[in-house]
Write a protein that binds this DNA or RNA. Structure first.
Lengths: 221, 221
DNA sequence: AAAAAAATACCACGAATGTGGTATACCGGA
DNA sequence: TCCGGTATACCACATTCGTGGTATTTTTTT
């Protein structure tokens, strides 16, 4: 009775993408019980949901999306959903608080996330929150966080590179090869070879890719 | 005189957890000098502070918590403190600038962050801010930060890399060579060679260094 | 079903790289 | 004055790269 809901044109349309049928049903019932929300579809995979999305005119306002799905992952799914329906808010569902996944999800465009053991109230609350325009967050603190990150960026690991070595490192990062660098600095190819050898030693790398990557990661430029 | 403060029931209670005695005292004095704040306790480890927390009815409003502590780390401490006293705001203290630590701290529930060489004004300011802000630094803050970072960074050009190509790009950035990548992905060296060839073509580069640099600059990872 | 895209695989060869050496000249601090 | 660090330079050799091909299978899209 409760989970067979009279469709109302005013209702906020919500989809669920979740491969655990039990949890899917639980969510479904929960949402349909709540006045103003209706769960039109529940899928077991992103692929299925995307097919429906491509064939319907009634795009959902919110998608509850499991982060660990078979086939296309939730993270990947976010991008696809957003391509088709940019206005749809996506709330990730996760079992445990996986920092990296959540971070990735946010980067991919998720509006929020929910732990699977959240209380029904929390679920409804989260949906309301994203619908209400997203982050009702203290802008000051957010700004402060950014300032912190900024402060933290400049100083990083010091590997005791000499001036010349830093100079050459920068040219390497620009994609130049040894010969080109030698010509640019008016020294012998052999000299550059030696310098690069020393840089590799100091940074503990042994490929060009590893070197450049480290230079970026550790802010050596 | 100054650091022996008359206890006032109205004062905001602040604890310090910091293993450097000198810095601990400096902070202590600073806080007690300020009208409206009182530093009731200063500990040298999370463990000590937690014991006290479990035995007192007067929970602190704010904890200044060193990030690099002997025994339980500051990051771990955050969770413990929050368990006992969710309303307590935690401000991290650190000398070394490490982006990851800060992010971890924020995820663990820290409200703010202070470099140890901050001016006295900054310290007081930070405490006031977390007290006034109310909003805990959760995933929403992170979202804000990411959003702003996204805005600051160029919208990262799309070079039409396929999934496999992105995968290989990431391995290249890790400093692996073709043979290693081939082994890791259980495919032939020739296949990797072809993929890399195509990546070079798409990104318009022709050296490993240039590739990795571009990957970082354009946020292709 | 047909077409397009992606992933796989192989060959060859000159160019560039990574690594082991050795060695000289310069300069600033102990 | 002697020593350590820096910059310079050269050699040799195995390994890896970059680039020109061609070609099949699998997946995705139309």
């Amino acid at each position: 009775m409760m989970n067979k809901k009279e469709k109302n044109i005013e209702d906020i349309s919500i989809w669920i993408v979740e491969d655990n049928i039990h949890f899917q049903n639980t969510m479904n019932n929960l949402i349909n019980q709540f006045d103003g929300f209706v769960c039109n579809f529940a899928f077991e995979s992103c692929e299925d949901a995307l097919i429906e999305m491509n064939n319907t005119a009634e795009l959902p306002s919110v998608i509850l999306l499991d982060i660990g799905l078979k086939g296309m992952s939730g993270i990947e799914g976010i991008k696809k959903f957003k391509e088709i329906s940019p206005a749809t808010h996506i709330i990730m569902l996760t079992i445990y608080e996986d920092k990296n996944s959540v971070f990735d999800a946010i980067c991919a465009g998720a509006s929020g996330y929910l732990l699977k053991d959240s209380s029904p109230e929390n679920v409804i609350e989260a949906i309301k929150e994203v619908l209400g325009g997203g982050a009702p967050m203290n802008i000051h603190i957010a700004k402060k966080v950014i300032d912190m990150f900024k402060q933290l960026n400049p100083p990083k690991g010091d590997y005791g590179l000499t001036g010349r070595e830093k100079e050459i490192l920068n040219l390497l990062v620009m994609g130049m090869n040894k010969k080109q660098i030698a010509e640019k600095l008016f020294v012998s190819f052999h000299t550059i070879n030696t310098h690069i050898k020393n840089i590799y030693e100091k940074l503990q790398v042994n490929t060009r890719g590893g070197l450049v990557a480290k230079a970026y990661k550790e802010n050596l430029l």
